[in-house]
Nucleic acid binder design. Structure first.
Lengths: 101, 101
DNA sequence: TTAAAGTACTTTATAAATTAAAGTGATAAA
DNA sequence: TTTATCACTTTAATTTATAAAGTACTTTAA
């Protein structure tokens, strides 16, 4: 049994913005670009880049539609993303001295 | 009351290697370079750079001595580092759906 | 009606951080 | 002696993240 190492934490998830995206997407059916931006507190460019990264990893999917006349990007976590996120949390709990009450 | 944002997570701490360093140093009086390297599972160069970063932030202190004839770097968390680490954990617990049992 | 401001992003450029490779200086082993 | 090893540091290369521009509209307001 190898000792638990911090390198086990999925680097795709271990980014403040991507962690925020996945945390939100794990708890709602889907979320818009604007909603994510507001909740996470980042810039348009940064959010865009990180969503693209997560989509590239197959952790989320994005659908582009229109809300009236305005473009609307809707994001959703995938099964793979949900599994990776759960595993990330599990690893964190094993590694950190957390005391959730 | 502003919504909780992931940008509140201290970027100095939110790095897999530095998180590992602080987690260990928070639970022991001090630790050697070799011990940290083994426990965290990283390379010499990476560990060295991250220790220097933490020292620069005032989160840890390093003492260089000799163990017999070999150089020995001993690391210790500072009060500031301990406070920042606690705050990081507190923020994480507020942000993530953790279920520590 | 048309100019200005806003929305909802993406793309490109720049800065910062991580990782990998090479380097240092000493000891120990063959 | 030369080869290897230890305990790191430094430099270089790659990857990330942040910031600045850019695109393609829509809405408001003169």
């Amino acid at each position: 049994m190898t000792p638990e190492k911090f390198s086990q934490l999925d680097p795709v998830i271990h980014s403040r913005v991507r962690l925020g995206i996945l945390t939100i997407l794990a708890s709602v059916k889907d979320a818009s670009f604007a909603y994510l931006k507001d909740k996470i507190g980042t810039t348009d460019g940064n959010l865009s880049a990180n969503l693209t990264r997560l989509e590239g990893e197959g952790y989320i999917s994005m659908k582009k539609t229109f809300a009236g006349k305005k473009p609307l990007t809707t994001c959703r976590i995938t099964g793979k993303g949900r599994a990776a996120f759960s595993e990330y949390l599990r690893t964190l709990e094993n590694l950190l001295p957390l005391k959730t009450e």
